[in-house]
């Protein structure tokens, strides 16, 4: 049995769904960030799988490189913000960080 595009896409879809699940169900900011990392990896897997099986050259790989790079920048800022929140609220749970209401 040969490994096809669909195998990779399935792995990607599972990762995406798990990431989505983490974002919806988790309360801790860092846990949510981990969910987002899973989604970004699902995207990368898709891009690279498509680029290989579609014979599309390195476009897919390049976009993945930039995605990784942006993930780094995002994580750095996220960490700074979460630490700041922790200083102000003494928690990183977003349920407890809710001073504004309708």
């Amino acid at each position: 049995m040969e490994i096809t595009l669909y195998h990779y896409l399935t792995v990607g879809a599972i990762l995406f769904s798990l990431g989505l699940y983490a974002m919806i169900s988790r309360k801790n900011a860092i846990m949510i960030l981990m969910g987002i990392e899973l989604i970004l990896n699902a995207c990368n897997l898709n891009f690279i799988a498509f680029s290989k099986y579609g014979g599309l050259g390195v476009d897919g790989q390049l976009i993945s490189i930039f995605v990784i790079l942006l993930a780094v920048a995002e994580a750095a800022i996220a960490l700074a913000i979460v630490l700041n929140i922790y200083n102000n609220f003494n928690t990183a749970n977003i349920d407890e960080v809710d001073s504004m209401k309708d």
Binding site: I81, I85, N88, V97, S99, M100
Partner: peptide, 8 residues
Amino acid sequence: ESSMKYLI
């Protein structure tokens, strides 16, 4: 708080 929500 707003920056964290925005980020997430």
